[in-house]
Design a protein around this nucleic acid. Sequence first.
DNA 1: GATCTTCTTGTCAACGCTGTCAGCACTATA
DNA 2: TATAGTGCTGACAGCGTTGACAAGAAGATC
Lengths: 330, 330
Amino acid sequence: MPVTMRDVAQQAGVSIKTVSRVVNDQPELSDATRQRVLAVIDSLGYRPNILARALVTQRTQIVGLVVVALDNPCFIEIARGVQAAGRAHDYQVFLITGDEGPHEEQHILKALAAYGMDGIVIYATPHSDRYLAEHAGRFPPLVVIHGLAEHPNISHVRADFEAGARLAVDYLIGRGHRAIGMVANTEAAPARRRCERGYAASLRAHGLTLRPERIEHGPPRIEGGYEAARRLLTAHGELTALFAYNDLMAIGALRACRELRRRVPEDCAIVGFDDAPLATIVTPNLTTVRVDRRELGRQAFLRLLEKMNRPAAVYPPLVLPPELVVRESA
Amino acid sequence: MPVTMRDVAQQAGVSIKTVSRVVNDQPELSDATRQRVLAVIDSLGYRPNILARALVTQRTQIVGLVVVALDNPCFIEIARGVQAAGRAHDYQVFLITGDEGPHEEQHILKALAAYGMDGIVIYATPHSDRYLAEHAGRFPPLVVIHGLAEHPNISHVRADFEAGARLAVDYLIGRGHRAIGMVANTEAAPARRRCERGYAASLRAHGLTLRPERIEHGPPRIEGGYEAARRLLTAHGELTALFAYNDLMAIGALRACRELRRRVPEDCAIVGFDDAPLATIVTPNLTTVRVDRRELGRQAFLRLLEKMNRPAAVYPPLVLPPELVVRESA
DNA sequence: GATCTTCTTGTCAACGCTGTCAGCACTATA
DNA sequence: TATAGTGCTGACAGCGTTGACAAGAAGATC
């Protein structure tokens, strides 16, 4: 039994439509009635039923933000960025998580469509990429972060992983390192290729030859980084620096160095990627590549906003430049 | 121009109501028409408009989960628990974050009410506690996690901080420690009091006297823990163990010990609280108190579900027991 | 054959809100 | 005085769905 417009109208002695006008700040209204209605709204504690409004206007002013694997702390800043930008434009942003296997994304997306979301921002996974490439047409406008799927209904926003990797390796080379290994990611991820390309490009640009055996793969977590770094350092004693796919792997590499009694950064410099919160907690603090994640989220929302206003338009991917954060590990 | 029931009805040559019956799995229907309608639904890709349904049934099957400070990694498991339980009961759980000052919660809650959420789970903050104690009546059923606000419309779910603190200190005493300091939280938080009470209770239970000067406060983050531990250890050389308000503060204490050349756990044992993901990343690994956060989330949802079904009922707070996780730091 | 059941389907009015359009009371213009 | 504007307000339909109820067909019972 929440208060409805009818209640307000009755109490104020006006028609429902007049209350609607007051609520929506429409101009064609005398100041007297406006004040009267506002007073009643206030005293009754009326709040418009957004669902009912959405039913007639066909817009919910809600966008969904889908992040299946919320445990990556990097997502949180992105989510913040999206939420803040959304709120600034009178949209409510609802975050949806999941964790139940490969079809999770499909269910979530379908549910969001059924709830009438005006748009969706989704952090890409291999599954979502595959699914959306085919079915994006069934959904409201989409912005995919760090994704690949091509579809006219999808706009892309991503960090420039390739440039970031180049930045990191350029820096190491600039510090005099010549034998630089890479702690790479085994798992299918859009960033994976780009990151390795950047590593290779930097070496090439400085006249160094790419030795494939200096790239070791592992799952993109601490353990994976540890194993890969251990393999690299024991097999290739000449390496004086490591570039890691992400900060977690870099932390694993840090651990491997400690275990092999290689001082960081003296014997082996390490550069990570992401500037995860952890980067400043471990010792030595991690030198890493940062992307402004909040900005990434903000841009994702803005892109979505454009797309929602002009669904037919197709926008080129938005690529955010990364930046090197020099700390102690290199 | 999404597909509506009307489209399906037309295509299948039945009335809208019949389609509705099919969609809602109502029994009074011949198998023949059911199959026919289902086929059309499938071929047209029809999905029911949940907003329209909500408008007439007065239930959205959505619950909101409000976590203003999402950066605490502990929340993520809680969120997972809520989402999973929600989905298992045909509810959609939307997560809402914020970060813009003290009135944020009010706005979020009001917005959720306007969107017609059937219920709300909120992770308490001092602001939300103060606000809800007065205005909970204006909202759909609420479950507050780790909160205090008393109101018939609120159910409480929380971890037993007092028991957890006692567990930690009991353990230290059991290991022979007699001079145990506490790295406590300055900030107003419901857990704060309870945690300190547990610390005191354990000492008392073992015949040790509580020395207030052995409790140092700081903000509940790494820096705060570092500062507080540093003060404690320099002023009270006799301390052989520290109990910290949470894992972040414990990590700060770890750092203080390293700086003061106190070996952990030999010279100074440390116990944290939360079993944050970080606890196994730092060295030495943190001995800490764990609460099953996923279960906490699950219970929060279940409580909400009961409350949504019987809004008049009042339930006692649900208190989850903690458990000690012994690792390296104590 | 008339009546009652049972099964299946449809009609109609809502839910709370907004858009369209009409209507009223004025004032300004010719 | 007639005409056209202008400013404000309300009637009404409809958004996509469900619930209450009615109605038609088919079979069962007397």
